[in-house]
Amino acid sequence: MADTVKSTSSMQLEFSFVDGDTRTVSIDNPKTSINLGAAAASIGSYVKEHNILLGDKTGADSKGLKSAHLVNQTTTKLDITPA
């Protein structure tokens, strides 16, 4: 048995709110060809324009996107079968 490698990725969008709160929305399985800046900008501006997301502490209005990250994660299931 060999090690089993599993790759996952997610796009993490950090929104900020007028009370200073921030929330991170994680979107799993983003397109591999994604243009992070463009995708984040379109979701971020839509959320801000329509004030869709509220801060989860005081329900404050959205201030817009603060940062966006693409997170690629590799999980390796280790093979511990004796050689």
């Binding site: 796009m11 979107i27 799993d28 399985n29 397109k31 994604i34 979701i43 839509y46 869709i52």
Partner: peptide, 10 residues
């Protein structure tokens, strides 16, 4: 928004 989120993913 739901469609946009999904569109950013596979």
């Amino acid at each position: 928004l739901g469609q946009m989120i999904t569109a950013a993913s596979n």
